[in-house]
Structures are given as C-alpha cells and as structure tokens.
Amino acid sequence: MEVRTIKVFTTVDNINLHTQVVDMSMTYGQQFGPTYLDGADVTKIKPHNSHEGKTFYVLPNDDTLRVEAFEYYHTTDPSFLGRYMSALNHTKKWKYPQVNGLTSIKWADNNCYLATALLTLQQIELKFNPPALQDAYYRARAGEAANFCALILAYCNKTVGELGDVRETMSYLFQHANLDSCKRVLNVVCKTCGQQQTTLKGVEAVMYMGTLSYEQFKKGVQIPCTCGKQATKYLVQQESPFVMMSAPPAQYELKHGTFTCASEYTGNYQCGHYKHITSKETLYCIDGALLTKSSEYKGPITDVFYKENSYTTTIK
C-alpha cells in the first residue's frame, strides 16, 4: 500500500517557510505537534488534498525554529505562539472599519479597549522592536488589523473576551517599542525636605499616572512627601515624541487643539466601556464603527496623549 502524501510549508514567522512532505494517514499533531492554519487549530486533523502548498504555523520545537521565533517575536515564552494563534482565530472574524481616516474595530468580545489602543497607536510616533509587531502594525494602518490585535493580546497575556485596560495595554506595548531616546527629568520640591531631581528613561519617561493635564504637570502637581507634608512635583525636561497622561476616570474637559487623542471610560472596574476622542479640525468621538463630532467635550476621561518633541522648564 502506497503512502499518500502532500507537500506543505511549516513556519513560526510566515517569513521562513520549511518544506514538509506530510503523510495523509496521520494527523498534523502526530507529525508536527500543535499546528495552526489561519489561526485555526488543526492539530487533530489529517492532511487533505486542499492543504497542498498551504502554510501551517507550528510551535518552535527545534533550534532553527526557536531562533526564527525569537528573532521575529522577541520572546522565548513557549506558550506565546499558541496564544497568538488562538487569538487570531477570533480577531480574523472582527470587522476593521476605516473611521475618520483611522483603522478602528467594530465592537465584539469586549474589544473596546483594543480599538482605543489601536486608534491611539496610529496617532503617536512609535516604532516597535519585534519585527512581528512592526509588520502587523503597518498592515493594521492599511486596514488589516487582525494579526496586530492578536499579537497585542498575546504580548499582554490576554484572551479574547476578557476586559482590558488601555493604560495597561499601552504599557505592555511600550515595553516592546523603541523608547531608548526618551528621557524625563522631574523635580520634587518640599518646604521641609528641599528639592530632589529624578531622571527617568524609556517607558517611565512617557507615562504618568495622577493627572490628565500635561500643562498642569509642567506647572506642578501636589504629591505627598515622605515627611508627610505636601510637596510639588513638576516637569523639568521632556525628550520624547509623545507623552501619555493618565488618571482614574473623572469628568474632564478636553479643549480642541490642546491634545492629540484621549480615552474615555464609562462604567466601573468590573464592567465598563471605552471610547476614543481625537482632536482634528474639530473633536471626534470614535466608538467602534461609530463616529460623532463636537466642538467641545466633557466626560469621564482616563488617558490623554500629547505630541511632544523637546521641553525644558522655565521655572527657576
């Protein structure tokens, strides 16, 4: 009895394709271990004539594949690729409408935090270190965002349907971005203890939790000093293409032309909904596939993004 075979390709990165001759009487799992086709788990399936010449994702289970996976995804987590594939199996079914010149995501599976993050990423200057993220990001900007969303979920250790947080998501993504040249110098002034300067680099240099107003941050924000008295913390120097200011959701007025974009969060910790506000020729609110415009805006804002380049204080 002759062994019926077909020729397929296996890959971990969709760049390096490895030619395989597979036995049609055995499952993919018996031949390769966990195997995925377009995100779908085909591990328990036997090869079919229609699979001839198709590319299958496999887990990096030998040295060659491990090197290829690390170079593309910059992670050695053995569960990463499987999590990416199972997320992709959902995100490829989502709709990605162009809204006001940006790629958004039609609401499904509690994905409003991903839509808000995706919209924000198209408006701030950011370059990702893992080629996987950078490639998928370019495709997302062009309207094909399924891979990018699935990668975000995998890097953030999230599953489809789980509630997510924009600030946490951005923080994970910033860790995989090139923020080497970003720098922030802060000064804390206390009447009792004097003053202390701190220099922050990388992710810490672009994120701040405690106030939404970048102007206020430049002037000074009140913080408790270690001595128990009130101290003032203010920005001395900022070198970065953008800054992200966050605070627990509270009524906040966004003035046209003073910011790049913002995240609105309605609801409580267990259950809520994100919308995205962007400042173009007027203010726009993007909620999944829905767009509304207004000249002014007041609502429960939790993150505001500002364009920056270089700032030095005039406070002496």
Rank of each mutant, 00 (worst) to 15 (best):
S246T: 02
I315Y: 15
G143Y: 05
V221K: 06
H276N: 08
T232A: 06
L254F: 00
K229A: 14
Q238P: 00
G257F: 00
Q123C: 08
T302Y: 03
V189G: 08
S25W: 11
F56Y: 07
L290E: 13
M244T: 01
A142F: 09
V221C: 09
L119P: 07
S104Y: 01
T19L: 13
T232R: 08
S171L: 11
R66P: 05
A117F: 03
R4K: 13
Y84P: 01
C112N: 02
L153F: 07
T120V: 13
E162M: 09
A132S: 06
C193Y: 07
A132R: 10
S171F: 15
V189H: 10
P60H: 08
L119Y: 06
A40P: 09
K183Q: 04
Y36S: 03
G288R: 03
L200K: 08
H276T: 05
I15S: 12
M170H: 01
S310I: 15
E204T: 07
N16D: 14
L254E: 02
M244W: 02
L65F: 07
A205Q: 00
Y234M: 09
L290F: 12
P131T: 01
L254S: 00
K280R: 14
S79G: 13
E68M: 04
K158F: 03
Y138C: 14
Y172R: 13
G210H: 06
Y208H: 10
P130M: 01
G82L: 14
G161H: 01
A108P: 01
V99P: 12
D180V: 08
P248H: 15
A115D: 02
N89A: 11
T314R: 15
Q251H: 12
A140C: 09
M244V: 09
N147I: 10
K316M: 15
V206H: 01
E215Q: 08
S25L: 12
H74Y: 06
P248W: 15
T91F: 02
I105S: 00
K95D: 15
K280Y: 09
G228R: 05
K218P: 01
T27E: 11
Y73G: 02
Y113K: 06
S246I: 03
V3L: 13
V304P: 00
E68Y: 01
F9L: 10
T232G: 02
Y208C: 09
C271Y: 15
V236H: 02
K95W: 12
A247I: 05
N14F: 15
Y274Q: 00
E296G: 12
S310L: 14
E296I: 08
Y269C: 15
